[in-house]
Simulated scan of single mutants.
Amino acid sequence: MKDFDTDRFRYDGDKSVKLKKAPTKVDDLYEDDDHYEALLRQQAAEIDKWQERMYAHNRYGLLTVFQALDAAGKDGTIQHVFTGTNPAGVQVYSFKRPTDQEIDHDFLWRSWRELPERGNIGVFNRSYYEEVLVTKVHPEILTKSQRLPEKITDDLDKLFKHRYEAIRNMETYLFRNGFPTIKFYLHVSKQEQADRLIARIEDAEKNWKFQEGDVTERDFWDDYQEAYETCITETASSKAPWYVIPADDKKNMRLLVGRVIIDELKKLPIAEPEPDDKRFKALQKLIPVIRAQ
């Protein structure tokens, strides 16, 4: 097996992020398609095993956050990594543009509502981080669309500083209550993104994936890179680390994400259910009762 060391992609607050220096591609972790599929199935089975243990222990939950630019592969990664995991133990939520009701609350409100229960893995496809990414690239969203008090939007630098602080506090609070957070930035190159967007246009069956706004947003590529660098640097911690995952090869990306999730699940002090001999013997007496019914 190739090098599955994921620590090289981890940011936990000990260093700043420079995305230009972060790889968007690594050497293949698989030998061929069959080997990739076998590794993916193996990881899925392991995630399922650890999620089941976490559910039986019923003390912890896990929140995974997926952030990326358009066409980086969030949907496919979530689908492939968690295929094989008991769907009752995985809660997936995709965050779209905020509704009027959501705008009428604080920027973290809609995320609190979708947090996982104990024993479950929560999967956020986009998240509260959009409010320090998209809004930073397009500040007019804050000043014109979100009906925030004028005294807050008068100083946007201060606003974002406070939002980073609120996010750090939220993730620390979750950690202290048994819900660690893992955050993934799927790091795709500008050329690979262009190739994928063009592929969506050229294939009629994939046109539904293409949004005209994706082309407009590519004009803000450098702004988004800067916003992500600042965001990751400001919110990475040992309690809620970021992983900047190379995304130019989707198969490598999925295998790396799966490995990270397994490793993080293993870090939780989850006790395996121990057989209770007394209860086992008592339950045996129910077998003839059931058969007689």
Rank of each mutant, 00 (worst) to 15 (best):
M1L: 13
K2T: 12
R10L: 15
R10F: 08
Y11R: 07
G13W: 01
G13K: 03
K15Y: 04
S16C: 01
V17P: 02
V17M: 05
K18A: 08
K20N: 11
K21M: 14
P23D: 05
V26E: 11
D28G: 11
Y30R: 01
L39N: 00
L40S: 02
L40R: 06
Q42G: 15
I47F: 00
I47P: 01
W50F: 14
R53N: 15
A56E: 12
L62M: 12
T64K: 00
V65A: 05
Q67S: 07
Q67I: 00
L69H: 02
A71T: 10
A72G: 07
K74H: 01
D75G: 14
G76H: 02
G76W: 00
G76I: 02
I78K: 07
V81F: 06
T83M: 02
T85S: 11
Q91A: 14
P98R: 10
E102L: 10
D104N: 06
H105L: 05
D106C: 01
L108Y: 11
L108C: 08
W109L: 01
S111E: 14
W112F: 14
W112L: 13
P116Y: 10
F124Y: 10
R126F: 05
E130Y: 03
E131N: 04
L133P: 06
H138N: 13
P139L: 07
P139E: 09
E140N: 07
L142K: 01
L148T: 03
P149M: 09
K151Y: 13
I152L: 14
T153Y: 09
F160G: 04
F160E: 03
K161H: 08
K161Y: 09
H162L: 14
R168F: 01
E171K: 08
T172F: 10
Y173M: 15
G178N: 06
P180G: 03
T181Y: 00
L186N: 03
H187W: 10
S189A: 07
K190R: 12
Q191K: 08
A199W: 09
A199N: 13
D203Q: 06
A204N: 10
E205F: 09
K206V: 07
N207T: 04
R218M: 06
D219R: 12
F220K: 13
T230Y: 05
C231N: 03
A236T: 07
S237A: 13
A240M: 04
P241R: 02
W242L: 01
Y243S: 07
V244W: 03
I245K: 00
P246V: 03
A247P: 08
D249A: 10
D249R: 06
K250D: 06
K250T: 05
N252S: 01
R254H: 10
I261Y: 06
I262T: 14
D263W: 05
D263F: 01
D263S: 11
K266I: 04
K266E: 12
P269G: 11
A271D: 15
E272Q: 15
E272V: 12
E274V: 15
P275G: 14
D277C: 07
D277V: 00
F280K: 09
Q284L: 15
Q284I: 15
K285L: 08
L286R: 05
L286A: 12
I287L: 09
I290V: 10
A292D: 13
